[in-house]
């Protein structure tokens, strides 16, 4: 494609064309969710978990993809959201929505307390700090047994719902989760193309150049961190209401590794990446079930192949951006 083509129509040139390439990742996601809604049962459970992870990874992407920072501790915010929802609804008989709101507020306060001092520092201080908060929150969920029941876990958490209406069916939950994921994806796309999103890209590209243009780098990092924590907390709450049970392992280090894989396989920094990554990584082990004892081997091989042939993630293969 020659660059001279883009001169002709300045009115439309800046709008990315809605081609099959840009729509494909969303088409894939819609097809998978549609299939799961249609057949229900076990596929619906797998896709449901994938969508909950997608909410988390969309948040992770704001901080790690848009702003190019590193956090190993976003699982802490999922745990804060999840446990707040669980305790307030199961123990204190609140309804889910206010409990979720309190969980999110708590996650934001803690994220602010950690982020405000550490995001001013350059380098890996934040990554270290987040790793610590992940471990600390994990420890609290294990040890604070009077509230969390430790490894026994909390059960009897009611399903998501509002105004006396509860979403109990697999299909209903899937539709609810898909709507949340669609809304979060839509908002992150709007953010990316806004003044705020450009400032985050500037911070990601060069902190010095961003400051030279008047961008308060620390403030934008904190903003991305808070948004990321809010989505993590939302994902944690969704999880406990969908499953009805929570225990410390749910938000452990395993979650960090899994969601990082989802983010990188799907495409860090892209809009569709988190959803695509969450779905692929959740479905991949299932598709290799026929390999029996070689399942893990096949899964690992598939991951390696994806990282070789799509190093910027699967969604980046469908990017509309052209080389000059």
């Amino acid at each position: 494609m020659t660059s001279s083509l883009s001169i002709t129509s300045p009115e439309t040139a800046h709008r990315p064309r809605l081609s099959w390439r840009t729509v494909l990742p969303y088409g894939f996601a819609a097809a998978v969710v549609g299939y799961a809604i249609a057949v229900g049962g076990y596929p619906a459970t797998v896709v449901g978990f994938a969508l909950i992870y997608a909410v988390f990874v969309i948040g992770l992407n704001l901080f790690m993809g848009f702003a190019n920072q590193v956090s190993f501790g976003q699982n802490a915010f999922a745990a804060i959201g999840g446990y707040t929802s669980a305790v307030l609804t199961a123990t204190y008989e609140w309804t889910p929505l206010p409990a979720m709101g309190v969980g999110m507020a708590a996650a934001l306060v803690i994220a602010g307390l950690i982020g405000w001092p550490t995001l001013r520092l350059k380098g890996h201080y934040l990554a270290m700090g987040t790793l610590a908060i992940g471990l600390i929150v994990q420890e609290i969920t294990v040890e604070w047994t009077s509230v969390t029941q430790g490894y026994m876990g909390l059960s009897g958490i009611p399903p998501m719902g509002a105004f006396g209406f509860e979403i109990t069916s697999d299909r209903g939950q899937l539709i609810m989760l898909a709507s949340v994921v669609a809304a979060a994806t839509f908002l992150s796309a709007r953010l990316k193309r806004s003044r705020m999103g450009r400032a985050l890209s500037a911070v990601a590209g060069s902190e010095e150049a961003a400051r030279a243009l008047g961008i308060a780098v620390a403030r934008y990092k904190l903003l991305a961190f808070l948004l990321s924590a809010a989505l993590a907390s939302l994902a944690g709450s969704l999880f406990v209401h969908v499953v009805g049970f929570v225990s410390p392992e749910v938000f452990g280090l395993h979650m960090v590794i899994l969601t990082f894989t989802m983010l990188y396989v799907g495409g860090i920094g892209t809009i569709a990446g988190p959803v695509v990554g969450a779905l692929i990584i959740s479905l991949l082990p299932e598709t290799f079930r026929g390999f029996k004892e070689y399942q893990d081997l096949a899964y690992g091989a598939a991951l390696i192949l994806m990282l070789i042939y799509a190093p910027k993630g699967l969604s980046a293969l469908f990017s509309h951006r052209r080389r000059p």
């Binding site: 450009r198 890209s201 990601a204 951006r321």
Partner: peptide, 15 residues
């Protein structure tokens, strides 16, 4: 020091 995630036009918009 350009912002590599952004297009040429978007770089100027950051300004």
């Amino acid at each position: 020091k350009l912002f590599e995630d952004l297009s040429t036009l978007e770089n100027v918009k950051v300004g």
